[in-house]
Amino acid sequence: MPLLEVRNLHVCVEGREILHGLDLTVNAGEAHAIMGPNGSGKSTLGHVITGKPGYQVTAGQILFKGEDLLALAPDQRAAKGIFLAFQYPVEIPGVTTMNFLRTALNAQRKARGQSGYSTPHFLKKARTVAKQLNIPQSMLKRGVNVGFSGGEKKRNEILQMALFEPSMCILDEIDSGLDIDALRIVAEGINAMRSQDRSMIMITHYQRLLNYVVPDVVNVMSKGRVVKSGDKQLALELEASGYAQFENAA
């Protein structure tokens, strides 16, 4: 059984259809790339998989380990192991990053029937992961993403992924806004988490992330559908020739 299966997904926002029958199958352990022009619906797909309000699914299914995801609230999906690294992480003033991380992790654990982490245990874990991602301790004491640079916000997303250990990771333009060193650190963070039962979907515009995190499958999205899937060669072809050849296919 695939880890994630999206079948004939039609999605409307404010009465306008944005996804027009999208199909995508991600098997356990696979790393997928999704590439496609601006506005083709990549972020929309990530939002619908994670349950963001405001989207109407008018047809189709999303199955996670064979279970219908659409019936679940966002927090229930998170507890089942679905994670989205946001293209635009939000700022939450007045909630320290540490408090947020611990509250979120323990909420997920509780929903899975696991015991919560004690404060010392959690602190140790969070500090270790932060260090690997080159995130200074002082950042963890600040409000969530408040005053973080674009690159710091992205690293904070990866920090959460590393702490929560989800099985389906959707990374929406995790490479945007990262400097050369940060991109390498983030990519190492992603690679360190790859395993047989964890899958990745990397939404990206650029080959450079895929040089570090080599995808098993590259999917091209255009106008709300996956119009072509192939191996890592496909990304290189796109880099050379652009999306023009797929515009008609959609």
């Binding site: 966002p74 927090d75 939450i92 992790l105 909420a107």
Partner: peptide
Amino acid sequence: DESLLFYLGARGLSENDAQALLIRAFLGE
């Protein structure tokens, strides 16, 4: 802010817990 509520939800907080966290932050000021 709906976008904050969704972010917290996507991180595993129930709607009520997410609201409580944001209300505490608001009152904290």
